[in-house]
Design a protein around this nucleic acid. Structure first.
Lengths: 222, 222
DNA sequence: GTTTAAATCATCCAAATGGAGTATTGTTTT
DNA sequence: AAAACAATACTCCATTTGGATGATTTAAAC
């Protein structure tokens, strides 16, 4: 029997989740709390042998939000497994919840069987349950291609007053194409492409492709 | 119709995957390659309008392994989506594959319907397909509780197995210096610098400085 | 209406680059 | 001891690049 705590400020949500889990007889709801403060308090009054194994935590709650509650409770009760169960899937919240100590992150839109299966799997194998779309966002965090890692193309390119055509050609240059390739793509002579390149180098105050690409990459021109 | 490439050194595996996808009429296998080098070569001879949308990549292959192939190809063909399809689930490989540019990571044990569903979802919504147990390992990386997640600093350049000297020369190249400049700085012949450069290009599977620098910048080698 | 700027294309030339070899010298690894 | 690898260096060759210079056309700016 897996003991589960539900933390959500909406009574309707708590009831829906309870009913979803009730379809499977191996779950037992031992705590239903309205926010983080309520959950932490109930944990202090319940006997340790009746502590929940898994805590389903909503994020948007009054008084003490889910992130804070996870961060606090995971320190006080390291044996608890915290699963975020929410409708929010923005990177900020995902990242903070994970850093706070959540071992899983499920969207409320998941079907009851999926949620039940994943919680049972968490219980049996220890693998945290994660909704596919959340998993992909986490992957992107590891990849570093989001939020912190992305650069805005508009700001950098205009300092050097490159014309639209020059920006276009710089883009192709960065892809590794040579004069005649770019000429074919744009239906112009390779000589013209070369002319544009030299103009670009002059505006960037360099005299080789590698130097131009260095500026392009480091200043966010491409 | 989703065009798919399969890269696996075992003919049996390629056939099994083909048959799994053949159950769903919306997939079309456009490339079947035996290793990374084979795949990269086939990409150069196929017309761009027939390029695959999704590349299913095994990791353990002779000549050019999957990680290197993804790192190279994702720079050369940014529009491709790379999905690792393998039996391995150790953190080292997951981490390297993600850093190399994979957008998904599926275990071969997944059923054909699950694989098909996730690839279709990738096609329709852009969300990378990730097996649940893999997703949890990625989450742990973000949490910073695992070994391979912690030493992320060194990994970038090591995917391509560049020697220390080659990394050094790649660094100078990115600064915009030419053979003779670098030779003077390192007290070696420009001929030797050139030799190193060509070795670097071979390891990166490119054939120009601009292409090498693109990979270097986008994969964090410099 | 003239000026200015951008985009187009060309020719000539010197330098740099990419590629295929061959070869020597040290380390490692086996 | 042999094999593999890394770093060094060279030659020969075709291609690419950077630069200078001149020219035409079109569109926007004054």
């Amino acid at each position: 029997m897996i003991r589960v705590a539900i933390v959500d400020d909406k009574a309707t949500n708590r009831r829906i989740v309870s009913e979803k889990l009730a379809e499977n007889k191996c779950f037992q709801i031992v705590i239903a709390a309205v926010d983080g403060a309520d959950f932490l308090h109930q944990m202090t009054v319940i006997e340790p042998e009746n502590h929940p194994h898994i805590v389903l935590m909503d994020l948007e709650m009054p008084h003490v939000n889910g992130i804070t509650a996870i961060a606090t409770a995971s320190s006080l009760y390291p044996q608890l497994r915290f699963v975020v169960l929410t409708i929010f899937d923005d990177e900020e919240k995902i990242f903070n919840a994970i850093k706070a100590g959540a071992c899983g992150y499920l969207l409320k839109e998941e079907s009851s069987t999926v949620i039940a299966d994943m919680l049972i799997n968490l219980w049996e194998s220890g693998a945290g349950p994660i909704s596919p779309s959340i998993a992909y966002k986490i992957l992107q965090m590891v990849q570093g291609q989001t939020a912190s890692g992305l650069r805005k193309a508009e700001t950098g390119a205009d300092i050097f007053q490159l014309s639209a055509r020059e920006k276009e050609i710089l883009e192709w240059l960065s892809q590794g194409y040579e004069y005649k390739d770019i000429g074919s793509k744009l239906f112009i002579s390779p000589n013209t492409v070369k002319k544009h390149c030299i103009s670009i180098y002059q505006k960037l105050h360099v005299n080789s492709r590698a130097q131009a690409l260095r500026i392009a990459y480091t200043k966010g021109l491409i």
